[in-house]
Design a protein around this nucleic acid. Structure first.
Lengths: 178, 178
DNA sequence: ATTTGCATGTAATCTGTTACATGATTCA
DNA sequence: TGAATCATGTAACAGATTACATGCAAAT
C-alpha cells in the first residue's frame, strides 16, 4: 500500500524539508496516527527520488555538515492527490496488546487486574492532559477551509479517543476491579 | 515481543484445539483487537511445539483427514501467565490510515471531504450495530469473577470505540463538511 | 571538554500479508 | 457433481524495529 510513501509526500507537499526534519514531523504532527523511524525514512526518500516523486538540493549547516532538502515534484503531487482522493474502505481493527491482555485477564487475581487497569488509566489521563494542552495552539475553531483544519480534526479525534479510553478503563475497574 | 505466541497460548489455555479452530477464534473472539492468518498460525504452532510450550495429538475427521489438536503444556501455561502478569507500559498509538488522510484532507474539495467522512460514518455505524447485537449473547453483566468477564470487557470497549468514532466523524462533517 | 542535538546512512531481524499448493468432507 | 467448508502447509514479499556505524554543530 506504500503508506509511508504518501505520509512523506503529504508532508513534503506542505513544505520542503530534510529527512531529519521529516523524522521530527512524524514524532510531532503525525504522532497520534503514524510513526516511522529514520531507518525507514531515509531508504524511502532514496526510493522516492529514484521514482521521480521528489528531488533534493544539498544545503550546508555550519561549515561542512551536509543536509538534503527534499521537494515534491509535479509527478509526486499528482500521485499523492490521487491516493488522497481514492475512497478506501474502513481498515480492519488494529492490533491492541492491552485489549488482548484484558481478554485473558480472568487468569489474574482481582487485585492484579485492578492494578493493571489503574496503571493504564493513569497513563491515558496524562496523555489526555497533554493533548488538551496541545489544543491551545489553535485560536478557537479553524475555519472550514483553513489549512489548519486537518490538524485540528485529528487532534480532536485523539482527545476523544483518550477520553473514551479513560471511561472504558474506569468501567473495567468498576466491573472487574476486585 | 512474540505477541502471537501469547495470543495462541491464551486461547489454548482456555481449550485444546486445532490450528484451523484457532484461526477461527482469531476471526471471532479476538477480532476486535488481534488478527492472524493461517499462514502465520501454522508456523508458530510448529515453533511452539519445538519449544515445548504446546503438544498435539492427531485426530481424524471422517475417514482420512488428519487434524492436530494442540494442548498447552505446564511450561506453556507458566510462560503465558508470566507474560500476562508483566506490567507493560501503554503502547504507542497505532497507525491509522484514515486519520492520516484526514490530516491531509485540506487538499481535497469540501464535497469530496464530506463524502469521505460520510462513507466512513456509514461503515462505523454498521459495525456498531453488529457489536451491539453481539452484546446480546451475555445475560446481563457477568459477575466480577466470571470467566466471561474478559470477553465482556473487550466487547464493551469495542462498542465504546465505535461510538466515539461515529461522534468524531459527525463532528468532522459539521466542522469541515463543506 | 563534554553533552545534547543535528544529520545520514546500512544490516539484521522480526512480523505480517498475499500467493501458491494440496487434498478431504459435507451438504445441496 | 459441484460448491462451501474443513484442514494444513510453504514461499515470496512487504513493512517495521533494533542495532550498528559515523561524524559535525552548538551550547554549557
Amino acid at each position: 500500500m506504500r503508506e509511508l510513501k504518501y505520509a512523506i509526500l503529504g508532508l513534503l507537499n506542505q513544505k520542503s524539508m530534510s529527512g531529519y526534519e521529516l523524522s521530527a514531523e512524524f514524532e510531532s504532527a503525525l504522532n497520534e496516527f503514524w510513526s516511522a523511524n529514520h531507518s525507514q525514512i531515509y531508504p524511502e526518500l532514496k526510493k522516492l527520488t529514484q521514482e521521480g516523486m521528489i528531488t533534493y538540493e544539498v544545503a550546508i549547516s555550519g561549515h561542512v555538515l551536509q543536509k538534503k532538502i527534499y521537494t515534491i515534484t509535479d509527478a509526486g503531487r499528482e500521485d499523492f492527490l490521487k491516493w488522497l482522493s481514492r475512497d478506501q474502505p474502513m481498515s480492519s481493527t488494529p492490533k491492541d496488546v492491552f485489549r488482548l491482555r484484558v481478554f485473558f485477564s480472568g487468569e489474574l487475581t482481582p487485585e492484579h487486574r485492578r492494578k493493571m487497569f489503574e496503571s493504564h488509566l493513569t497513563q491515558h489521563r496524562s496523555r489526555l492532559n497533554y493533548l488538551r494542552q496541545q489544543m491551545q495552539k489553535f485560536n478557537g475553531t479553524p475555519g472550514s477551509a483553513s489549512p489548519e483544519m486537518g490538524d485540528y480534526l485529528v487532534l480532536t479525534g485523539a482527545i476523544m479517543r483518550e477520553e473514551m479510553t479513560c471511561e472504558w478503563l474506569q468501567k473495567c475497574i468498576e466491573l472487574a476491579g476486585g
